Deep mutational scan, measured.
Amino acid sequence: DIEITTNGEEDAKRVIKELQKRNLEYHIEVHGNQWVIKVR
């Protein structure tokens, strides 16, 4: 598993777009303004 910590929603959406392009499965956890994306 890979864990990507982003700085808020805009940053997270940019990362998610890339993950979707590669058809990767991911899970999002929001901790305040930090979005942690866990990639399987």
Rank of each mutant, 00 (worst) to 15 (best):
Q34W: 10
E18N: 06
L19V: 03
H31M: 10
T6P: 05
G8E: 06
K13M: 15
K38M: 08
E18V: 08
L19D: 00
N23H: 11
E25F: 10
V36L: 08
Q34H: 11
T6N: 02
K13H: 11
E29I: 11
R40S: 12
E10F: 07
I16L: 07
I37S: 00
D11S: 10
R14D: 06
N33T: 12
K38C: 07
N7A: 09
K38S: 09
E29K: 05
N23E: 08
N23S: 06
T6K: 03
K13D: 07
I2Y: 15
E25L: 13
N33Q: 10
T5L: 13
K13S: 08
Y26P: 02
L19Y: 02
Y26V: 04
V39Y: 08
G8P: 01
D1C: 14
N23A: 08
V36T: 07
N7P: 04
E9A: 10
E18R: 05
T5C: 13
H27P: 00
N33P: 07
V39K: 00
T6G: 14
V39N: 00
E3W: 15
K38D: 01
R14V: 09
E3L: 14
T5G: 03
E29C: 03
I37G: 00
G32I: 03
E18K: 05
R14T: 07
E10S: 07
R14F: 11
W35N: 01
N7Y: 15
V15P: 00
K13I: 13
Q20N: 10
T5M: 12
E18T: 05
V36R: 05
K17G: 08
V30K: 10
E10P: 05
V30S: 04
R22N: 11
I2P: 03
D1L: 14
Q20A: 09
H27K: 12
N7F: 14
E10A: 12
G8I: 08
Y26G: 02
R40M: 13
R14H: 07
V30W: 05
N33R: 05
E25N: 10
I4K: 01
T6V: 15
A12L: 13
R14P: 03
E18D: 08
Q34Y: 12
Q20L: 11
W35E: 01
K13E: 08
E3K: 10
L24V: 10
Y26N: 00
N7Q: 13
L24F: 06
V39W: 05
R22E: 08
Q34A: 08
E25P: 11
G8W: 06
R40F: 15
I2S: 05
K21V: 08
D1I: 15
E18M: 12
W35F: 07
E25M: 12
I37M: 02
A12F: 11
V30C: 06
R14I: 10
D1W: 15
D11A: 14
V36G: 00
E3I: 15
R22Q: 14
I37L: 03
R40E: 07
T6H: 02
N33G: 11
T5K: 11
G32F: 04
V36W: 02
W35M: 04
K38T: 15
N7E: 12
L19A: 02
H27C: 08
K38L: 11
T5D: 03
R22S: 09
R14N: 08
I16M: 08
L24H: 03
W35H: 03
D1Q: 11
D1A: 11
L24I: 12
D1H: 12
H27N: 10
H27F: 13
I2F: 15
G32W: 03
I2A: 04
A12E: 01
K13Q: 13
R14A: 12
I28V: 13
Y26T: 02
D11V: 07
T6I: 15
H27E: 14
T5Y: 15
Q20T: 10
G8Q: 06
I2D: 04
W35R: 02
D11Q: 13
H31N: 11
L19M: 04
V39C: 06
H27Y: 14
N7K: 09
I4V: 05
N33M: 09
R14Q: 09
E10L: 09
I4E: 01
R22Y: 14
I2V: 09
E10R: 09
V36K: 05
G32R: 03
V36M: 04
V39A: 03
R22M: 15
R22V: 06
Y26R: 00
E3V: 15
D1V: 14
E10M: 08
D11H: 12
E18P: 00
V36N: 03
T6W: 03
D1S: 12
D11L: 08
K21P: 01
H27I: 14
N7R: 10
E3D: 07
V36Q: 03
Q20I: 14
E18I: 12
K21I: 10
R40G: 09
N23F: 07
V39R: 01
V39I: 13
E29V: 10
N23V: 03
K17Y: 11
E3Y: 15
K13A: 12
I4T: 02
I16Q: 03
I28Q: 02
N23L: 06
E9V: 09
Q34E: 09
A12Y: 07
V39P: 01
I28D: 00
K13T: 07
R14W: 14
E18S: 06
E29A: 05
E29P: 00
D11M: 12
E25S: 13
Q20Y: 04
T6F: 10
Q20F: 04
K38I: 15
V36S: 03
I2E: 05
V36H: 05
K17L: 13
E9F: 12
R40I: 15
D11N: 10
I2Q: 06
E9K: 07
N23Y: 05
E10G: 06
R14Y: 09
